[in-house]
Amino acid sequence: MTFDTKFDRYGFSAIPDRPVYDFPGGKRLAVYFALNIEAFEFGRNPGNDFTSMPSPPFHRGYAYRDYGNRVGIWRIQRLFAEFDIPLGIIVNASVYDACPDVLVPFRERGDEIIGHGRTNSERQVDMSAEEEAAMMAEVVGRITAEEGRPPRGWLGPFISQSPQTPELLKKNGFEYMLDWFYDDQPTWFRTGEGPILAVPYPSMELNDLPAYVNRKASDGDFTTMLIDCFDEQLEESSLYPQVFAASLHTFLTGQPHRIRQLRRVLAHIAARRDSVWITTPGEIARHVAALPPGTVVGP
């Protein structure tokens, strides 16, 4: 696979120079939490397991992640229900086969379902153009059949994209993607099929997996990061609108000691509910897409 080194998907724009707009209720900080619900194929590398370099059949990593769907997810579900905070559910289509029961309480609550590939054991960048197109169509079809409506948002497994992914997203009816984290505001992203919204997603920072696994942050460190980021962005939102986003994984944050930490974070944010818009990435995309042309930067 070859890549074009000329990049023209979006241009430079300094955030202080942009038009200022409000979110619903005159608020300037939109807040959402994304929960990754994933399924893996046994024998294919699911990723790090905190101990040593994994090797086939990767049973430790597989079992560790299976814990998330068997146990951890239910702790997370109860906590978000307790604080009445919606979720963006980032889901592999294979979850409908592996453990469909885990999606029931989120569906009943009206949480947003976001496409996340077929399985977290494969990456789009490793696929041929034909394989990726077939995979995406399969995912859209499965989610539509199970949920009664197609997904509006997409995050690739491993946050992976091929050179054709943005065009495929448009062809399959997606309104926004979470794969590109280069801003604190949604922006328009150029594709050969017309623009698509890039909604901020914490792929590098407020994402529990790279924080705990790659950067070796402690549980308390991550809690401090979440609260400090929220507080700073809330203060800065007097200048211009922003999105606070946090990403959680069932097998990491679903551990009992981390649920204690997450409760502190949700209590802190819920106490400021009147000052922020607590929502989902799909609702953020819907709101900014309806703003007057030229309000949201992009090609």
Rank of each mutant, 00 (worst) to 15 (best):
R28G: 09
E235K: 15
S128G: 15
V95N: 11
F174H: 13
F158S: 13
A14M: 07
P100Y: 01
S55D: 00
P46N: 09
R118W: 15
V104H: 00
R70T: 11
D84I: 13
N207Q: 03
S238W: 03
G294Y: 09
K170D: 04
P19G: 08
A285Y: 00
V104S: 08
A30D: 06
W154A: 07
L239C: 06
E283W: 02
V243K: 01
D231Y: 02
F174P: 07
E193W: 08
S247W: 00
L168Q: 05
V213N: 08
G47T: 03
P256G: 08
I159D: 14
T144V: 06
R18N: 09
R142E: 12
G110T: 01
P186Y: 09
T191P: 07
Q261A: 15
P157G: 11
F33W: 14
M204E: 13
F244G: 07
E131A: 15
P24V: 03
F42P: 12
N69R: 14
T2F: 04
K6H: 15
T5H: 03
Y10S: 07
T250N: 00
P16F: 04
F7V: 14
I37E: 10
L252R: 04
I269R: 08
T191H: 08
L234V: 06
L209Y: 14
I15C: 12
F80W: 10
T279A: 07
V125M: 11
V288R: 04
A246M: 10
A133R: 07
S121A: 02
E205Y: 15
L79K: 13
G148M: 12
V265P: 05
E138M: 07
G220H: 03
H268Y: 05
F189H: 15
S13M: 02
L87F: 07
E283A: 15
G156E: 14
